[in-house]
Each structure stands twice: as C-alpha cells, then as structure tokens.
Amino acid sequence: MSAASAGGAARAARQQTHLWVAQRVTAMVLAIAVVVHLVMIIGAVRGGLSAAEILGRTRGNEAWLAFYVVFALAAGLHGAIGLRNIAAETIGLRGRAADLAWLAIGLATAVFGIRAAIGLYA
C-alpha cells in the first residue's frame, strides 16, 4: 500500500468512525426522546384528541420546538446510518459516495420532521 492510499484509508476509517459515533450518540438521544414523546402522546389523548389541544400545547412554545427539532435530527441521522450499515452488509453498497448519499437522506428525513415541528410552533 502506498503512503497516499494508506493515508486515504486512515481518513476513510476516521469518517466511518464518526458515522458510528453519530449513530451511538443519536441512539442515546432517541432513548430519552422516544420516552418523552410517548408519555406526551398518552397524556395528550386522555379525554379525547383534538387539534386545538395539541396546538395549544405546542404553539409558541420554544421548549417543545427545540425538543422536536433535536428528536427529528436524531431520528433522521440514526435511521439513515443504520440503513447504510444494512446496505453495506447485504448488497455490498459501500464507499464515500454511498456514505454521502445516506447522510443526505438522513438530513432530508430530519428536515421533514423539523418542518412539521415548526408547523406546530408557528
């Protein structure tokens, strides 16, 4: 292996490690966020579910906005990195281009969630 390709391999390994760390950190965030989200749902549907009640909780509330932005970001990235690993092992889809594509898919998924959170806030 030449020095250049050895350096490239080390850089690739470092980027793959970053993706792995991102997935573990988002998993920790999701463990808490999913519990909060479920408890909130159970609380919200007691005595009937209405749009007015939900909007009353979320509209103008920066804390819920921040919570759901973080939640959506974590879910989008976590899911995309997980799908990346499955694709690599089952169909051999690997490489930097594939990684960038998965990152884009993860961020796009997160943007949908963030858009919904902003919709409930504004």
Binding site: A10, A13, R14, Q16, T17, A88, E89
Partner: peptide
Amino acid sequence: LDAVAGDAGCHS
C-alpha cells in the same frame, strides 16, 4: 487505533 477503526475494523 486508526488501523482497527471503521468498517473493516471493530465498528463492524
């Protein structure tokens, strides 16, 4: 640690 990191290493 560089050599054992990433998809070919411990993270798989």
